[in-house]
């Protein structure tokens, strides 16, 4: 295929050492180390995951709690380094893993917009050009100079979503975020995601709302206990998942 994949996940496994007891103390660690008593329990959050996502695809990930969905997103966005295997992404990623990640609640929304922009790697000038657009989308005009600790979670999410989607990124990662905010804002977000789809953006969505996945996604992946249970067209996977 001439068009390369936007995301390629190759044989990714992610293991965590689950300490039997939490050692955060130098003395304890040293004693255990000397006794060779450092016991770990291996926990495989992801096991041999391989798949590709084509450019411009909308890809959903479904699965029960603890099946490894969020871990997979973190591996793809580069936050976690996989134990084995590799992930190749082509293009700029705007992660939405939990909105409001880069916010400092002591600062005002105005200050946070610039801070968060730089967390995502945008320059100040770039942010200034898009400032009005962000404010308008989030509908926070009246609260711009209020510290964000006084915001409700829905308000924080609005600002976060507005920043993450202010430009058309190459890859957008959405993790459960549409669950916050009222229905009107959810609608607005979905419309915005659809707008992106008309462009070349590749979107990756994790959600417990099967409806949402069915509405938005073309392809789907079903994770179970860190393994791929099923991958393919959304309809097939979702039907199996619902039965499942």
């Amino acid at each position: 295929m001439a068009e390369p994949y936007a995301i390629e996940v190759k044989d990714v496994s992610m293991h965590f050492n689950m300490n039997k007891e939490k050692l955060e103390n130098l003395k304890e660690y040293f004693i255990k180390f000397m006794k060779r008593d450092l016991r770990y329990e291996k926990f495989a959050a992801l096991e041999d995951i391989s798949f590709q996502i084509a450019k411009g695809d909308v890809f959903g990930i479904v699965g029960l709690n603890g099946s490894g969905k969020s871990t997979l997103l973190k591996v793809i966005s580069g936050i976690l380094k996989p134990t084995t295997g590799s992930v190749i992404t082509r293009g700029q990623i705007a992660p939405l893993i939990e909105l409001g990640a880069g916010f400092d609640m002591e600062l005002t929304a105005r200050e946070n917009i610039f801070l968060n922009g730089s967390v995502l790697g945008y320059s100040k000038k770039y942010m200034q050009e898009r400032f009005d657009q962000i404010v308008e989308f989030s509908e926070m005009q009246d609260f711009l100079d209020t510290p964000m600790k006084n915001y409700s979670s829905g308000m924080v999410a609005r600002v976060g979503f507005a920043i993450a989607t202010m430009t058309i990124p190459d890859i957008l990662i959405v993790d459960e975020i549409l669950a916050v905010g009222d229905f009107r804002f959810q609608e607005k977000c979905e419309n915005r995601i659809r707008e992106m789809l008309e462009g070349d953006t590749t979107v990756l969505i994790v959600s417990h709302s099967i409806d949402q996945i069915e509405r938005l996604c073309k392809h789907c992946l079903w994770l179970e206990h860190g393994h791929i249970k099923m991958i393919g067209e959304t309809e097939e996977v979702c039907n199996a998942y619902k039965k499942g």
Binding site: L107, F114, G117, S118, G121
Partner: peptide, 17 residues
């Protein structure tokens, strides 16, 4: 270079706070 603005923004955040 890409994260230079972040460096400045964080430093000025600490300063304002």
């Amino acid at each position: 270079r890409r994260y230079c603005p972040l460096l400045w923004n964080l430093a000025s955040r600490d300063f304002t706070l």
